[in-house]
Amino acid sequence: MGVREYDYIRGNTALAPERKVKELDKKRDLQRKERERKAHQKRKSLLVSGLTIATVMFALGATTLYLDGKIHALQKELLILEGNMKEEEDVNAAINVDMLKFASFDKIKSTAENELGMVYPSSESTISIDMSKEYFSHLKNEESKKSGLLQKIIAAFN
């Protein structure tokens, strides 16, 4: 007998006939749905991974641009500071030259004699003092009399 699509009950057709579903069709349908689900999951995972990679690349690019801008600004500031430093070194060199010019003994002597009216002392205008003697001992005695309690404590530790 051939395969029938509908299963009829003999003699009574009051009931609606049910269609026979083949087990093979159910299995194929399940396999097709499973393939579609896997394909959808694969597309979804590729999309998520692509967006993740794009986000990471964007973040790295933005960070690189920001840091490059910061480095450029620092290099510009460094060049300005180096220029200022070079100018100050030139000013210092000029001041050193002036100091050497005015620090020579002959220049000092001529300035003192000509501009300030100074002269070398003669032997009649000088006084010699013998510093080996203690000329100021009376000042030390007065100082020791004025020393207070703190001075005595310090002297005790010495």
Rank of each mutant, 00 (worst) to 15 (best):
K140M: 12
L46I: 07
N158A: 13
I53N: 06
V91S: 01
K33Q: 07
N92H: 11
G148K: 04
L24R: 12
T13W: 03
T64V: 09
E36M: 13
D106A: 07
P17N: 14
L24D: 15
F157C: 03
F102P: 00
A94R: 15
S110N: 01
A94Y: 10
Y135C: 07
D29F: 07
L100S: 05
F105Q: 13
N114V: 00
I71C: 02
F105N: 08
V91L: 12
K70G: 01
R28H: 08
L60W: 05
Y8I: 07
K42W: 05
M57W: 06
E34Q: 13
L65T: 14
L65K: 14
I80D: 15
K38Q: 12
R35I: 09
T111Q: 01
H40M: 02
M57N: 08
A39T: 08
E87W: 09
S123Q: 10
V91I: 12
D29C: 05
F136S: 12
S132L: 15
G61S: 10
D90Y: 15
R37H: 08
S110I: 09
A93F: 06
K76E: 12
G61W: 10
A59Y: 08
L79D: 09
S45T: 09
N96G: 01
R35Y: 01
I95W: 09
S110M: 02
R32A: 03
H72G: 11
S123Y: 05
D25Q: 08
V56A: 02
L47I: 08
